[in-house]
Design a protein around this nucleic acid. Structure first.
Lengths: 227, 227
DNA sequence: CTTATAATGTCGGGTAAATGACAAAACCGC
DNA sequence: GCGGTTTTGTCATTTACCCGACATTATAAG
């Protein structure tokens, strides 16, 4: 691929459409360009030079592992989304990392300080970015509430609905999702154990709401619309 | 109090120091000035005219109640802090409200749209604001991890340490906090029941780590530093 | 001081979900 | 195809915490 093309990857994100070509070049995404395959770890949050990443193709998860090896997944990042040190804060450490879920990903990235400089010059950009962070903040608040108020089954259903909305292809009476998540992955997202996730998925399948296999997930349309 | 003085309340927050007097006046905080007493509800998140609030004096909690009447407290706001529609997003509903904890509070506020307009003109402001929201985002991520990884006792201890850091007065071998929280309040913060919170507090008291009563909380300094 | 109200203390039973352990099935590289 | 590895299925046991109930104590209000 010609490197000229790589420069314009960021245009896929509405945040960067307000920028001129020269401004976009300031971010110097070429050096931050990379491809990855399933299982690769993209970054650790305590890296010396904080960056922001743009996912051009594929899907990744943002996770944290505690001292006992327990993992939770805080967010699934899809094609066209940003991740990394979005909070612009580099003082408080957190043990987050990003791992590739799909067979391959394409990523470009830029340094936090370059981005901040650009925002100083471009108030539009700063405001849009603030809203982007604000939205992610709000979504996490929502996950937090769900975790406290709802049981594992409800959280699973909620997740499946969200996944369908983000990633599903509608057919006549179903929504089909190309499945790049194991039941273990799903368990981490809804904050439960693998065994519980398995049981609940089978329970939902028995009830006729979905069909799960390693390749794809088919959700009953009625089921997704209700609840 | 002269209304001229009220205008400059916001100067207490470092976010607003970059602004000129005229710019600060644009926010029109006078109309949003109010005092409140313990138990008062300051705002609901689904209000028609979203605002951002600055807490000049006192302490409040940001909570959510679900359909069954269960409550969680997402954040304690102290003197000098901002709250309200900080995410700048008005599309997704969440049932948050703010309630006064201390005997009295002093608050000023301004409308979201005025603030956004100001950020458009003042990239510095937008950038600082993003960092502020980013920090809150990061703190919530931390609470989320704690909720999943740690048991109620650990979460209580973590909360007490945070509270001591924010609000405590150091003595020779203890940290004294003026107590404006009931055990029910604390339970909401650490996402457990009142009964569990009570048991854990008494357990910690029996172990000699603290002394809790309705007026004040005394934490053993060793205890706060360790763990 | 008296009484109402709110906050704290305590206990036993019930339960969702974790844990650990193992088997079966699906997938992948060769 | 075969053999190793990953993923999924199932179950019996344990546990942290919830839930409801009630007694006791502190605080506020008349």
């Amino acid at each position: 691929m010609h490197s000229e093309i790589k420069y314009w990857f960021l245009r896929d994100h509405k945040l960067f459409r307000v920028l001129s070509n020269d401004q976009l070049k300031q971010l110097c995404v070429i050096t931050g360009f990379k491809e990855g395959k399933k299982g690769d770890i993209i970054y650790f949050s305590d890296s010396k030079e904080p960056r922001i990443y743009f996912l051009k193709k594929g899907a990744i998860k943002i996770s944290e592992v505690d001292v006992n090896g327990n993992e939770i997944t805080k967010e699934i990042i899809q094609k066209g989304d940003l991740f990394g040190e979005l909070s612009l804060d580099t003082t408080i450490a957190n043990n987050e990392f990003a791992q590739v879920l799909t067979n391959s990903v394409t990523i470009c990235s830029f340094m936090l300080k370059d981005f901040e400089a650009l925002m100083e010059q471009h108030p539009d950009l700063a405001l849009s970015y603030t809203k982007l962070v604000g939205l992610k903040f709000k979504k996490l608040k929502n996950s937090y509430s769900n975790l406290v108020f709802k049981d594992a089954r409800s959280r699973l259903i909620q997740f499946l609905k969200d996944w369908a909305a983000r990633d599903g292809n509608e057919t006549l009476d179903a929504i089909v999702i190309e499945n790049y998540l194991t039941q273990q992955d799903i368990a981490h997202i809804i904050c439960t154990t693998r065994q519980t996730a398995t049981q609940l998925l089978n329970q939902l399948e028995t009830e006729g709401h979905l069909k799960y296999d390693r390749k794809e997930l088919v959700l009953d349309k009625q089921f997704v619309l209700q609840n």
